[in-house]
């Protein structure tokens, strides 16, 4: 046999029809609305109450140490909140689909694509952007290394490169040029400044660890 998958993957799921699911959904919805006691829900097999849906969400978080509280449309990306509501335009909108890395920021110390982060998901978390990286006029070693190695041309990707680079070092993924290239592959540079970027991160890694 050459087709390696004879099992019927197209069979219906667990005998549960769409109609059953819809009926179950309606029943639970009615129970929730009319406030029938938890025994009725437990009989359906689930003692918990549904969570409420909202069109506007109160979110409280810290950006570069400063606390913010906003009422957000749940469609907002973290990137748009940073740039349009908080005036922090360091993180850049390149592709807006998580493909280029220009929007990279740290959430609780981990690098993320802020364009792909639902802003309502950062409630109670700590955000660090490129604006929060230096200590006053003292540049972060990664910022200094990018200057020293001329690791940019137009500079549009640079805030994302630097934030990703800092995380790359902290994750201990900057042990060799090869490892830096692998773990920085989510940050694209259209100008092709990659040799300088890799050298800058290797240099900054020594400064950050030393």
């Amino acid at each position: 046999m050459t087709t390696d998958r004879q099992d019927d993957v197209n069979s219906d799921i667990s005998g549960l029809s769409r109609r059953d699911v819809l009926k179950g959904g309606t029943a639970l919805g009615v129970l929730a609305v009319t406030g029938i006691d938890s025994h009725a829900l437990a009989q359906i097999g689930n003692p918990s109450l549904p969570a409420a849906f909202r069109t506007e969400i109160e979110v409280s978080f810290r950006v570069n140490g400063d606390r913010s509280s906003l009422a957000l449309d749940p469609r907002s990306s973290l990137l748009d909140v940073l740039r349009d509501q908080l005036g922090l335009t360091g993180a850049k909108k390149g592709c807006d689909h998580g493909q280029c890395g220009a929007c990279t920021v740290h959430v609780d110390g981990r690098r993320v694509a802020s364009c792909m982060t639902l802003a309502v998901q950062i409630d109670d978390l700590d955000i660090t952007t490129i604006e929060g990286l230096s200590e006053g006029d003292d540049l972060h070693p990664m910022q200094q290394a990018f200057i020293d190695h001329d690791a940019l041309q137009c500079g549009y990707c640079t805030p994302g490169q630097i934030m990703a680079g800092v995380a790359c070092v902290r994750e201990e993924h900057a042990g060799s040029p090869q490892q830096i290239r692998e773990y920085m592959s989510g940050n694209l540079c259209r100008c092709g400044a990659y040799p300088g970027i890799v050298a800058a991160i290797a240099d900054a890694a020594r400064a950050m660890e030393g």
Partner: peptide
């Protein structure tokens, strides 16, 4: 993007109840 409503259940039971009720 189409407008949507958002819910954040606190545990698995609530999440399943939320899904089942939402349709």
């Amino acid at each position: 993007m189409k407008r949507f409503d958002y819910a954040r259940p606190a545990d698995l039971g609530s999440a399943i109840a939320t899904l089942a009720a939402a349709g």
